[in-house]
Computed example of a mutant assay.
Amino acid sequence: MSAGAPGAAPLAVVHPDATVLAEAAAARLLTRLLDAQSVRTPVHAVLTGGTVGIKTLEAVAASPLRGAVDWSGVHLWWGDERFLPDGDPDRNESQARAALVDALIADSGLPEDHVHAMPARGAVVGGVTVETPEQSAAAYAAELAAFAEAGGPSGDSPAAVPAFDVLLLGMGPDGHVASLFPGHDGLTARGATVGVHGSPKPPPERVSLTFDALRRAREVWVVAAGAEKAAQAAAALAGGPVVDVPAAGARGTERTLWLLDAAAAG
């Protein structure tokens, strides 16, 4: 897999600090959902975890623009998840629910069945208890495929997923996005999802969208803050090899944005 990943070339937008970055990303996300709803319904957004990702969701919750979105026509997905029991505070879903999602369900008309969490360890899906990351990944791939018809894959893409209107990603100091880590087998996984073992960042077991799925998004936004991420952000924006800098392979079909604070921009 080369640095010349398919999709739109990245554009970097730099904000002065992590707080402004999260607030700006929240405003941009709400505007993106409104713009998408002006031309199609439903719309699909992929959420991310991490410090800035959750701060972005908190900023969405506090924004007066939040009420302008028709949340009954929005579906929420995740780019990756820690393979932990339901409700574990380290799950991206748990943190996103506390920051935004539960409030949207309670008072903004977001249907509970529009919240598509990756199955947790011990969840029962189709009468089967999910005991491995691979089982969770397979169940999530099936759910993604159920919504793929209207904006499904074309050409030689093997990922049956919605054409996500916006897909948010954080980036680790090692350049990973979702749970696709440098040198790991998940980088070359085909289809929509992959079970991850031996993650260098705990917990070791995770579930992730693949590059096949990430690259189906109309817009991909990588949101990163902190000086410890500057070297990998620069390498990814310069087109570094995906095997070493997975973030370099995260591209949208129409737009790829890097939303950085000044420290991450280096």
Rank of each mutant, 00 (worst) to 15 (best):
G172K: 05
T56P: 01
P203Q: 11
G191D: 05
V242K: 07
P133F: 10
E205S: 10
L34E: 13
S136R: 12
A265D: 15
G266S: 06
P119C: 00
A225E: 01
A159C: 11
P89M: 11
A264Q: 04
Q37D: 00
L168E: 02
D174P: 08
L21Q: 13
L84C: 10
Q37H: 10
A9E: 14
R251I: 09
V220K: 03
E219M: 10
D35A: 15
D261E: 01
H44P: 01
N92M: 01
R215D: 01
R215K: 07
V115N: 01
T132L: 04
K201C: 05
L76E: 06
A262T: 13
V222Q: 03
S108Y: 11
G50P: 06
A230Y: 03
S179E: 07
R91H: 03
P200E: 02
V177E: 02
G79T: 10
L169F: 11
G79V: 13
A138G: 09
A234G: 14
S108N: 14
L33S: 00
A106Y: 12
L214Y: 02
S208M: 04
V124P: 03
L34K: 03
A26Y: 04
E58D: 06
A22D: 10
G266E: 00
A238P: 04
A12Q: 04
P42H: 04
S136I: 02
W77D: 00
Q37C: 01
P16L: 08
V222G: 02
A142Y: 03
V128D: 07
A22L: 07
R255P: 02
G4D: 15
S38C: 12
G127Y: 04
A139S: 12
W77A: 06
T210I: 07
A213F: 04
A24R: 15
G172Y: 02
P246V: 07
P158G: 07
E219Y: 08
S179Y: 12
A148K: 00
V222L: 08
R206T: 05
A142G: 06
W77R: 09
G240F: 05
A117P: 05
P85H: 10
S208H: 01
F164Q: 09
H15W: 14
E81L: 05
G109W: 05
A117N: 00
R82Q: 05
V220M: 06
V101A: 11
E149V: 13
K55E: 14
A27Q: 12
R255A: 11
L104A: 03
T48I: 12
S157C: 13
N92G: 01
A3E: 15
L214C: 01
E58M: 06
R190S: 15
V74F: 05
G53N: 04
P42L: 11
A5N: 10
S179P: 14
S72L: 09
T129E: 15
A250I: 08
V177G: 02
G239I: 06
Q232V: 15
G191P: 01
L144G: 03
W221V: 15
V60M: 15
A142R: 13
H44D: 10
W258Q: 04
E58Y: 01
Q37S: 00
L237Q: 03
E81N: 12
P89V: 11
L76V: 14
T193N: 02
S154N: 09
P203H: 07
W77K: 09
A250S: 03
S136Y: 08
L84F: 00
A234N: 06
F83D: 02
P153H: 00
H15Q: 13
A236I: 06
A213K: 00
L180E: 10
A150N: 07
L169I: 03
